[in-house]
Amino acid sequence: MFEARLAQGTLLKKVLEAIKDLLNEATWDCNENGMSLQAMDSSHVSLVSLTLNAEGFEPYRCDRNCSLGINLASMSKIFKCASNEDSITIKAGDEGDTITYVFESPNGDKVSDYEMKLMDIETDHLGIPDTTYSCVVKLPAAEFQRICRDLSQIGESVTICCTKDGVRFSASGDLGSGNIKLAQNANVDKEDEAVTIEMQEACTLTFALRYLNFFCKATPLSPQVTLSMSNEVPLVVEYKIGEMGHVRYYLAPKIED
């Protein structure tokens, strides 16, 4: 028996919005520690790794480890039926081939339940090595979203160049080119508005904006986003999910032919 209730159901709604355009389907792995998901997009260029810790749910019950194969577009459709104020409970029986979602209004006057079929999904889990990255940039998530959106007007790729002075995002295409430079500003009054750079070694990497724009669907989850980079390895884009977990996106770089 698996049962997990999140009082702040809107977080789960946002999590679904953050992954459903990148992944058609995915397996949620549930154990006593919480729920997690790892899946690559169909072209194997990017990967989503999502963790929701058991402590974030009340109650959380997982009698035995289970893998729930879920069509994420269907799950997202059903979650749109929950109000932002509702709690969301996810339930799955031990041998069932369905999952049930229960949405409850804050005063308990309205309770909705939706049942959905589970899927058999063949998944390849990738081993992600522990890496110390040359550059770790933290910036406001809305700012990163804006940069990706703006540079998509100019070209298909963005080159991110990180030095101790700041980080520069550049794109070029048929109409010309554009550069956006952000300086480090850890001293702003509001922590959420800070741009901070931890750098061991400068790095320059090029990525497809199409995928970064998919990642930016996670912007409503967190005021800040963390970009971790080293030359010639995949980029990590991380958003915290409140106090209960994170969604990490990995993106393979584009390399000069």
Binding site: V45, D124, A208, P234, A252, K254, I255, D257
Partner: peptide
């Protein structure tokens, strides 16, 4: 030009 790498070039299947 640039070539899009695959993630499987970097991460091995478990």
């Amino acid at each position: 030009g640039t070539k899009q790498m695959s993630l499987t070039n970097f991460f091995k299947k478990k």
